[in-house]
């Protein structure tokens, strides 16, 4: 690598970067800024307020603060992130990575086969994942899940109606385990065998080795995964929308679905943009922390 030495070189670099930056700028950064600006207006998608847009200051935010549906969707999103991403994916993803990893005195057969199976939920497109769950969560007696529970004598359940939130949490755990497993497997591979050997020689039990050594070494990676999964889960849309469209009622209206409905069902661009701005602020705050973590690990 070398420093840019002339204006011609500077121009070359700019030209090389321009197409990529144009795409990011046009389709991510500009819409983000636009959302913030529109959040101070009464813009609508159609009708009078589509053409005649007025600045209304912080009215949208005042309305947002007083909207029980918005605060409910925010709380729902936090619960969803907490249970599915932070607890479910992290624990089960780590467990699979830990069991499949080879270390002194621990080697399981069929590890590659298991790893391949575990990757499947993440490898399939979002719509297939959702359709697969939609089909097995079918509320009739012949639904796959109901047949399984029926084998134990349980009554058939309308999973996506009666337990919609619990079901989407389980679905998101299912989809997120592979990502956690892949990250943690790479991290576990990086631990030196000598360190593990020595700890066993020193008489540590497997549990002590796990708690004092492995968890200690992997702390940065665990933190990094928690940040990444929190950020991606917060912005989730397709998987949940396909399954429930936010319902029944608003039982599964997470913040992403709330924003979508404000824009495309109620056509409230200004108000929806205020909700989007809140989401942007939360994600960028988490993002700054994530970037800092990445910088430290570099």
């Amino acid at each position: 690598m070398r420093r840019i030495q002339s204006w011609r070189e500077g121009l070359t670099v700019a030209a090389f970067l321009a197409p990529a930056l144009a795409l990011i700028g046009l389709f991510t950064v500009a819409p983000g800024i636009w959302a913030v600006v529109q959040s101070f207006t009464d813009r609508a998608l159609v009708g009078r307020n589509a053409a005649n847009v007025q600045f209304i200051g912080l009215d949208n935010y005042a309305q947002l603060a007083g909207d029980p549906d918005f605060s409910a969707s925010l709380v729902r999103t936090v619960v969803f992130v907490l249970l599915s991403a932070i607890v479910g994916q992290t624990i089960l993803g780590f467990l699979t990575a830990y069991l499949l990893a080879t270390r002194p005195r621990w080697r399981l057969r069929f590890s590659p086969l298991f790893a391949a199976i575990f990757l499947l939920p993440l490898a399939v497109p979002e719509a297939v994942a959702a359709l697969a769950w939609a089909s097995i969560a079918n509320g009739t007696e012949q639904g796959f899940l109901n047949r399984m529970t029926g084998a134990f004598g349980a009554e058939p359940v309308q999973w996506l109606q009666e337990h919609a939130m619990a079901t989407i949490i389980v679905v998101n755990i299912w989809r997120g385990i592979p990502f956690a497993m892949v990250l943690f497997s790479a991290a576990l591979e990086g631990i030196s065998r000598e360190v593990l050997e020595m700890s066993l020689v020193d008489g540590a039990t497997a549990w002590q080795q796990f708690r004092r050594i492995i968890l200690g070494i992997l702390r940065p990676q665990i933190l990094l995964f928690l940040m990444l999964t929190t950020i991606t889960t917060f912005g989730i849309f397709g998987l949940v929308y396909f399954l429930t469209r936010g319902g029944p009622g608003d039982a599964t209206t997470l913040i992403g679905i709330y924003i979508y409905l404000q824009g495309f069902k109620f056509f409230e661009i200004g108000f929806g943009s205020a909700a989007a701005t809140v989401m942007l602020v939360i994600l960028l705050t988490l993002g700054v922390y994530y970037v800092r973590l990445m910088r430290e690990q570099a």
């Binding site: 636009w34 959302a35 960028l284």
Partner: peptide, 13 residues
């Protein structure tokens, strides 16, 4: 940092 912005947040604009 741009990577953390999901299309969900910018979809209306």
């Amino acid at each position: 940092l741009v990577r953390v912005i999901p299309p969900t947040a910018t979809i209306v604009p």
